[in-house]
Design a protein around this nucleic acid. Sequence first.
DNA 1: CTCCAACCTGGAGCGCGCTCCAGGTCAAGC
DNA 2: GCTTGACCTGGAGCGCGCTCCAGGTTGGAG
Lengths: 124, 124
Amino acid sequence: MSGYAPSEAARRSGFSLDTLRYYEKIGLLADVDRTAGGQRVFTDDDLGWLELFRCLRDTGMPIAQMRRYAQLAREGEHTADERCELLQHHAVRVEEQMDLLQRQYEHLREKIRYYERLPGPSSS
Amino acid sequence: MSGYAPSEAARRSGFSLDTLRYYEKIGLLADVDRTAGGQRVFTDDDLGWLELFRCLRDTGMPIAQMRRYAQLAREGEHTADERCELLQHHAVRVEEQMDLLQRQYEHLREKIRYYERLPGPSSS
DNA sequence: CTCCAACCTGGAGCGCGCTCCAGGTCAAGC
DNA sequence: GCTTGACCTGGAGCGCGCTCCAGGTTGGAG
């Protein structure tokens, strides 16, 4: 109970098969287990990583940085500090991103209000 | 007073010269005024458009959709409804985007808290 | 009048993050 | 044992939004 076929891993993670293979190829996902015949078998641990990658990706972290994080994690406990700093640094970027998005969203709403104040074509 | 050289327009809008030319080339920015010699002269109106484009771009609207909006605006008042719908539709996307960003930001913070609870290397 | 920085054009190139493809292999069900 | 659908590989291709380039023109300062 913790061995998933590629299609199942794709379903659970929300990434496409191609993306899963791509992530392994570029060294984001460390060597995934294989059957005797060479087909991938994803573990719960792999799925955990994928969940993290989704979080980081959705918040705009570049792949190169995710890879750095993953490599540090593989190097062991002594990189915990650096990993933490990396995430903290990223969190600041995300905050800036949220601020900007919020501000521009308000501009957008203002623009929409302008249109909504115009008399509509079907106003009697 | 309301005629800006390309470099000045770039400075004011925050877009690069190349991007301004690109936006005109693809029909986002409608034909910009020129001097007798062919050099661009941006108006306050152009700068207004650029401000809108920045808002839409920062909120993730694809260029194709911005171009559609700009073209509708050029077609006249009778497209106001469609333009408004386009912006409203976009606003919904932006709200979704903000929700997702917020959720993932919280995951990120949680992850960071995990690291911060670890004993640091210099803890006495 | 001369100079030179700013500008022009068309078109090629790039960085990112996948996505698709051909040609072959694996393995579960009948 | 055979079939068939899921899987494998390396590598090419794509869509987006710029960005850069070569080679030439413009136009304000001195």
